[in-house]
């Protein structure tokens, strides 16, 4: 464990908590893409199956349980409790266009052709594009509530911090995983446009408005 990875995990946890609080407090999931949340749930379920087979550390196991539980709670709030506030019209990204290529790529480029490893690889590829429906929704509505932009900033920062973690681990432990690194770079790049808007607008107290 290093400071970059810990900061990344905490940023990830913060993002998930911000989202849950936003939906719970405002009793609305307006502006949030349910499809992205479905993809994140798939990412956690396919990646954290080793929760029952491999014990790495108490921290690792607890965080996995928290992420899966929070993801399930978010889906429950969005699709059951506050279903009426879910923005079906704007949340129209075709997630099969993300799922199918990730499955194919995971079958072609992986470290080991075993079920667990293929699922892990699929999860890594899917996570890198899972935010697209959310960014698509923000672009369609042309704006995002400030709490939603804080959520996106924390979520984008988590993988950016992981990039620093991978540089550190390469230098300090000569450990690297090209699949995770490649997907992490793609994932972080997808947020760049949003990071620019967040820093130039939201931090100045303005509303996040995308140029029409």
């Amino acid at each position: 464990m290093n400071i970059f990875r810990l900061a990344g995990d905490l940023s990830h946890l913060l993002a998930i908590i911000i989202l849950l609080l936003k939906i719970w407090k405002t009793r609305s999931c307006a502006g949030i893409s349910g499809k992205s949340q479905v993809l994140f749930a798939i990412v956690y379920l396919t990646r954290y199956l080793d929760l029952f087979t491999t014990y790495i550390s108490l921290y690792n196991s607890i965080m996995k349980i928290v992420f899966i539980a929070a993801s399930g709670a978010t889906l429950y709030l969005m699709y059951v409790k506050f279903k009426a506030t879910y923005d079906h019209n704007h949340d129209s990204f075709r997630i099969e266009f993300l799922l199918i290529p990730c499955v194919i790529l995971a079958l072609i480029i992986n470290h080991d052709f075993t079920v667990m490893e293929i699922l892990w690889t699929f999860s890594i590829y899917l996570e890198s594009v899972a935010i697209l429906p959310q960014l698509f929704l923000v672009s369609k509505t042309g704006e995002a509530e400030s709490i939603t932009s804080h959520y996106l900033f924390a979520l984008g920062s988590y993988r950016a911090l992981y990039l620093l973690n991978w540089i550190y681990r390469y230098m300090a432990e000569s450990h690297y995983d090209l699949i995770a690194i490649f997907a992490g770079v793609v994932q972080t790049i997808l947020y760049c446009d949003f990071f620019y808007l967040y820093i130039t607008k939201v931090l100045k107290g303005k509303k996040l408005q995308l140029p029409a």
Partner: peptide, 10 residues
Amino acid sequence: DYGDQLHDEL
């Protein structure tokens, strides 16, 4: 080889 790749990250 990578086969025994242990994924110790979240």
